[in-house]
Amino acid sequence: MNMISALNHLFIIRDSHASKQLDLLKKALYADQIIPYLGPGLLRLKTVEPSVPHTPETVAAALNARAPAPSKIRTNMWSVAQFIEQRRHRRTLQAWMAEIFAGPVAPTVFHAWLATLPLSLIVDSWYDGAMRAALAETGRTDVIEIQGVTRADAITDIWTRTYDLGGRELQPGSAATTVLYTPHGSIRPAANFLVADSDYVETLTEIDIQTPIPQVMKERRTNRGFLFFGCRFDDQMLRTYARQIMKRSQGPHFAVIDSATLTKNERRFLAANAITVIDMPAGEAAARLAAARV
């Protein structure tokens, strides 16, 4: 059955409506009219179990295996990371996160397809580096990555670092056709991680006035919308970052997500930010987008 439904102004499209919308989004991606915003759920598109954690909860579990945290925070990645930083030092947290995400993550077909498109901007909200790897595999030299960095040990007013696909650090503001923005950091090339509550204290204080958001991000989002793929918004931190990254963008916005699993907070967030839910299995949606025809 074809269906478009709204609940508290949350728009959900299914069946043939969802398929038609994906076809339109595919054309928009080819035309560089929409920005992919990728989440850890993309790792589950592969037939084998991901070699690295694919949810904040699985990161929390991996950290707990190294240093058990109090039960009341045990499933919260940010709180467990803060507990380790306070008890074991930042260097220990950094080393453990590098261990947890050390396994190579092969890009999915969807990553590989996105890497071939002339996109101005791609946002990757996870630490695995798969999108970076897909871009590097194309041999492109017109891509830079801007990573969020912790200010825990910073002695200068720095929010991000910029790298080329070879891992060389560049000056802020370097020109590129495609910018890969990883706001929470990434395992490669330098194991930058925003993960503990303390990493976000100053960032969240400043993010409402957009200070931590790179200038190129602000410029390139202005006349575009976002396509959220592999993302969930069941934590306040995830919602805050998505909201601020979307800020002052033109839209429209879409999210490929199983509507039956949405929490009350997710529904409220999606409705408040005018994000239309494409209710289709992620694997099916990725295959439709990455198919050869346009």
Rank of each mutant, 00 (worst) to 15 (best):
M1N: 08
N2T: 09
A6N: 07
L7E: 14
N8E: 12
N8C: 04
N8V: 02
L10Y: 05
R14K: 13
H17L: 06
A18D: 02
A18Y: 02
S19W: 02
K20D: 15
L24K: 13
Y30W: 13
Y30K: 05
A31T: 01
I35P: 00
Y37R: 00
G41C: 04
K46E: 15
S51C: 05
S51Y: 02
S51W: 03
H54Q: 07
H54L: 01
T58E: 14
A60D: 08
A60I: 09
A65D: 15
A65Q: 15
A65G: 11
S71L: 12
S71F: 15
S71E: 15
S71V: 15
K72R: 11
I73D: 09
R74Q: 10
T75E: 14
W78M: 08
V80S: 04
A81K: 05
A81W: 06
I84Q: 03
E85N: 05
H89M: 11
R90Q: 12
R91C: 05
L93W: 08
L93F: 08
L93K: 10
A95N: 12
I100W: 06
F101P: 02
F101A: 02
F101C: 01
A102P: 02
A102C: 02
V105S: 08
W113R: 07
L114D: 01
S120H: 10
L121T: 10
S125C: 09
G129I: 09
A130I: 09
A130C: 10
M131Y: 09
A133F: 14
E145D: 05
A152H: 13
A154R: 13
I155D: 10
D157C: 07
W159Y: 14
T160Y: 06
R161V: 11
T162R: 04
G167E: 03
R168D: 11
E169M: 08
E169C: 03
S174V: 03
G185K: 03
S186Q: 04
S186T: 07
A190L: 02
A190R: 06
A191R: 05
F193G: 01
V201A: 11
T203L: 12
L204N: 12
I207T: 12
I207E: 10
I209F: 14
I209Y: 15
T211I: 10
P212I: 06
I213R: 11
R220E: 06
T222Y: 09
G225K: 11
G225T: 13
G225E: 14
G230E: 03
R232N: 13
R232G: 13
F233A: 09
F233V: 09
D234T: 08
M237C: 06
Y241G: 03
A242R: 01
A242D: 05
A242Y: 00
Q244P: 06
R248P: 00
F254A: 00
F254Y: 15
I257D: 00
I257Y: 00
A260V: 05
T261K: 10
N265C: 05
R267H: 06
L270V: 01
A271S: 13
A271D: 00
A271C: 03
N273I: 01
A274S: 14
D279A: 00
G283L: 03
E284R: 11
A285D: 03
R288G: 03
R288M: 12
L289F: 11
L289Y: 09
A291I: 07
A292K: 11
R293A: 12
R293Q: 12
R293D: 14
V294T: 13
